[in-house]
């Protein structure tokens, strides 16, 4: 599904990614761990197409050259990024945002746009799965939301948009145990053979709930170690020092 070869990324002439290789197949869950400044969020941003990065190397997504697609085209083709800091958009109802977003994606897939009624049916179903109160949906997007509410909202969007590749950028940071469990349940319930996850995190904590197939250690813009779920436990004990 995703094949990254020798990826380099620069921002303001500063090298952040230095020859990163990664392959993700449908149905897999990959976790990326690494110290601050190792390039984790940059990888997420480069994959989703944020402006301001100068890149080299190759990223193929389902055979397509990712660098030729705009941010919204990538989203429409099934790449979803759960933001570390979801943005507030004053005056825009969460519901309206979700519907606009879903319909943009549907339109691009050649599907019919949903009317309000059918949309509400989907939203109600997905939000109750995540234990999200309906009132929450008529509030302005992320405005005055707590950290946990913002992150739950990201997972809700993921479940509504049904992406193929979901990238979670430190979705666990700032969450209490209950919120963490809800987020993890949200991910686990969406996981299937068709879609894949790239989970960026600092802590083993989230990986107690979402079992990864692979854990990669990122350091100075490169993957320096790849292992299975046990690697996370080891890292928790020893820290990154052994790998960087």
């Amino acid at each position: 599904m995703l094949n990254i070869k020798n990826l380099e990324a620069k921002v303001d002439n500063k090298h952040i990614l230095n020859g990163l290789n990664l392959d993700i197949k449908p149905g897999e869950v990959h976790a990326i761990m690494g110290p601050n400044g190792s390039g984790k969020s940059t990888l997420a941003n480069v994959l989703s197409g944020k402006n301001g990065y100068e890149t080299k190397g190759e990223i193929k997504y389902n055979g397509e050259n990712l660098s030729e697609l705009s941010t919204e085209e990538r989203a429409q083709k099934g790449i979803f990024l759960a933001f570390q800091y979801p943005l507030e958009i004053p005056g825009v109802n969460t519901n309206v945002f979700l519907r606009t977003s879903l319909n943009s994606v549907r339109k691009a897939r050649g599907e019919k746009e949903l009317d309000t009624l059918n949309f509400l049916k989907i939203v109600k179903e997905k939000s109750s799965e995540l234990g999200i109160d309906e009132k929450f949906l008529s509030r302005q997007l992320n405005v005055g939301f707590s950290g946990g509410e913002k992150k739950k909202n990201e997972i809700l969007q993921m479940k509504i948009l049904q992406p193929k590749l979901s990238i979670l950028d430190e979705t666990d940071s700032g969450l209490d145990i209950d919120a963490l469990r809800i987020v993890a349940d949200g991910v686990n319930s969406y996981k299937n053979k068709e879609n894949a996850f790239l989970i960026i995190t600092h802590y083993q904590r989230l990986l107690d709930y979402i079992k990864p197939d692979f854990i990669h250690v990122l350091s100075k813009g490169k993957i320096v170690k790849t292992g299975n779920a046990d690697l996370g436990v080891e890292l928790e004990k020893t820290g990154y020092a052994n790998f960087i």
Binding site: S70, E72, F80, V105
Partner: peptide, 24 residues
């Protein structure tokens, strides 16, 4: 950042501007 957020959810630039400005 707001525009990027909207783009990442599949909205093109004009839809994103329209949404943000209409919210404003």
């Amino acid at each position: 950042e707001q525009l990027y957020y909207c783009n990442q959810r599949g909205l093109d630039q004009e839809e994103a501007v329209s949404l943000i400005v209409n919210g404003f």
